[in-house]
Simulated scan of single mutants.
Amino acid sequence: MTGLGDWTPQALAVPGEVRPVVCAPEPVLSRAGAEVDPNSAETVRLAADLVATMRVAPGCVGLAAPQIGVAAQVFAVDVTGHPKAVTVHGTFVLCNARVVEATRWKAGREGCMSVPDLTGDVKRASRLVVEGELPGAGRTVRLVTDAFEARALQHEIDHCAGLLFLDRVAGAHAIHQRKVYL
């Protein structure tokens, strides 16, 4: 197991299609996604679609397959340029990811494209070790990260498990109406 190395979404050599994002209470968002074969053509296409869809959504730092209606354990993350990011691995997609180690728990505000009107305060690990498979690369990676990228990874892994950030808040007092800026 290694880091991401020279893997990039462009290495997929598959053009991504922008797909519609589903919103709660869509049933696919509340059921665990199936594990996938990271080397199948279907998974590689799904990975490319996730990256393409994420890139056209302003402020989006992660997107999971259930958010585009596919009950699968695949997600994309890119926190590049985010002011809360410390460690940044660029754009990447992981399949069948699992948390290996989680420490330094901190509360922070989260939002989600599938819950567009709300944000919530969620306690997450600020130091994280995750293992997952790179689509089309035929290898498992171990990713060590922190701060905002750690939060984004946990948020997307939760989506793959059928959980929304709303399932992680401490109560109604930790849910907030999203501010709209005109």
Rank of each mutant, 00 (worst) to 15 (best):
V180W: 00
R127H: 11
P9T: 10
G81Q: 15
A71N: 15
V93Y: 02
V88D: 14
A24G: 03
D117I: 06
I68V: 15
R127G: 05
A102M: 13
F148S: 15
R127T: 05
T119L: 03
V100Y: 06
G111Y: 04
P25N: 12
V122M: 08
V122D: 02
C112G: 04
E149G: 10
A150H: 05
R178K: 00
A102C: 09
A172D: 14
L63Y: 11
D49R: 08
A174S: 10
A172Q: 15
A137T: 00
L134S: 10
G136T: 05
V18T: 09
R31N: 05
P38L: 10
H89Q: 13
P38W: 02
M54H: 01
V79C: 15
W7T: 07
P38I: 07
A57W: 02
D6G: 07
P38D: 06
L50T: 04
Q10E: 09
A125K: 11
V130Y: 02
C95R: 01
V141G: 04
A97T: 00
E17F: 02
A125E: 10
R109T: 01
V88Q: 12
V18M: 03
Q177E: 10
E42C: 03
D146V: 05
V21F: 06
C23A: 06
L164H: 08
E131Q: 14
E110Y: 00
Y181Q: 10
L166F: 00
R98L: 11
P38N: 09
T53E: 02
E26Y: 07
V144I: 03
R127C: 08
R45L: 04
C23P: 02
T8E: 06
P15M: 03
R98K: 13
E133P: 03
I175E: 04
Y181P: 05
T87S: 15
S30N: 09
Q67T: 12
H82N: 09
W105L: 14
G111Q: 00
E156A: 11
M1F: 01
V22K: 11
T2E: 13
T8M: 13
A57L: 14
A11Q: 12
L128F: 02
D117H: 04
L182F: 15
K123G: 12
A170V: 08
R98F: 07
G108W: 02
N96G: 09
A71T: 08
G171N: 15
D78P: 12
E156D: 11
V99K: 06
L166I: 06
V61D: 06
V86M: 10
A170N: 08
M54E: 04
Q177H: 05
A97R: 01
V86R: 13
S114A: 06
R127L: 00
G138V: 00
G62P: 10
Q73S: 01
K106M: 11
Q73C: 10
L163S: 12
H82P: 03
P116A: 01
P20R: 07
V141Y: 00
A137C: 02
L118H: 03
G3M: 06
R19A: 11
A76Y: 03
S114L: 05
D121K: 02
A137H: 00
R104T: 03
H89S: 13
A64V: 11
